[in-house]
């Protein structure tokens, strides 16, 4: 488990470093995700090592957003008189974005014949 955590943290560290060195428009952990993905593709041993620990962390991914969410409550007053406009913009645009994303995917999947696999993997 410590080995797997070390690999994960090193990839995050490398991601943070590269983002700052190269001024990339992505957060360090997202680049770290790309790095560890490349490592897992290159080495089945790394993949087997990291997989159980990563799955354990991700089982409760929601928990990790709770501290930031509590911080939001204290800042809701920042919205002030614009709260209604911001609320409407967030709800409507999220519905529209979800619909656009899913329709874009399904339409091109149909065009290219990249249908969903019937089995559950």
């Amino acid at each position: 488990m410590i080995h797997a955590l070390a690999v994960i943290l090193i990839c995050q560290l490398a991601g943070e470093t590269l983002v700052r060195l190269l001024g990339l428009p992505a957060p360090g952990p997202v680049l770290g995700m790309a790095l560890i993905f490349a490592l897992m593709l290159a080495s089945p041993r790394v993949a087997a090592l990291v997989r159980p620990v990563a799955e354990a962390i991700l089982r409760h991914l929601s928990l990790l957003f709770v501290p930031a969410g509590v911080g939001v409550v204290g800042h809701l007053s920042l919205l002030g008189s614009d709260a209604l406009a911001l609320g409407v913009a967030l709800v409507v645009s999220t519905v529209l974005a979800l619909a656009a994303g899913v329709l874009g995917f399904v339409a091109v999947a149909r065009l290219t014949g990249a249908g969903d696999e019937p089995r559950n993997d």
């Binding site: 955590l5 994960i8 943290l9 990839c11 995050q12 991601g15 957060p27 360090g28 952990p29 997202v30 770290g32 995700m33 790309a34 560890i36 993905f37 897992m40 593709l41 993949a47 990291v50 997989r51 620990v53 990563a54 799955e55 962390i57 991700l58 991914l61 990790l64 957003f65 930031a68």
Partner: peptide
Amino acid sequence: LGPATVALAVPLW
């Protein structure tokens, strides 16, 4: 949150 974002490579893999 940072390590968990890195860990998202696993479902992708």
